[in-house]
């Protein structure tokens, strides 16, 4: 079940992979949270891939997934792994390099 959201053609600035486990509460919340964050801070600059590892277990091994849900920030480097339902927004923003102190609010705002 690949759920891709392309806002732009070509290489996106942010490449995010979210690994979820079906429709468990944690996974559902994680999907909602990341979508909200992306729309708010990265509109038009990101590529989000949501992968259900129940359906594609091979990918879990390939991407070294242990915890679920896990959000992997593939681009920009360095790679970061955010585990949990992404409800702690400050931590998510900090890990994604989007935190307020650096003033990187969305240019569309």
């Amino acid at each position: 079940m690949d759920l891709e959201e392309h806002e732009e053609d070509g290489a996106a600035e942010y490449v995010l992979h979210l690994y979820i486990t079906g429709a468990t509460p944690n996974s559902t919340r994680a999907v909602q949270n990341i979508k909200g964050i992306c729309e708010q801070y990265l509109k038009g600059r990101y590529e989000l891939l949501i992968i259900d590892i129940y359906q594609q277990p091979a990918l879990a091994k390939q991407d070294q997934i242990v915890a679920a849900p896990t959000l992997v920030k593939k681009m920009p480097l360095p790679t970061r792994r955010l585990i949990g339902d992404l409800s702690e927004k400050d931590k998510v923003l900090l890990a994604l390099g989007l935190s307020a102190p650096f003033g990187t609010t969305s240019p569309h705002d």
């Binding site: 486990t21 919340r29 091994k61 242990v66 679920a68 790679t79 970061r80 955010l82 585990i83 702690e88």
Partner: peptide, 17 residues
């Protein structure tokens, strides 16, 4: 060093693998 906890999680990934 790569991992950031951002909420509730479990180790279902390990189980699946």
């Amino acid at each position: 060093s790569e991992i950031e906890e951002t909420g509730e999680y479990d180790l279902e990934g390990l189980f699946i693998r």
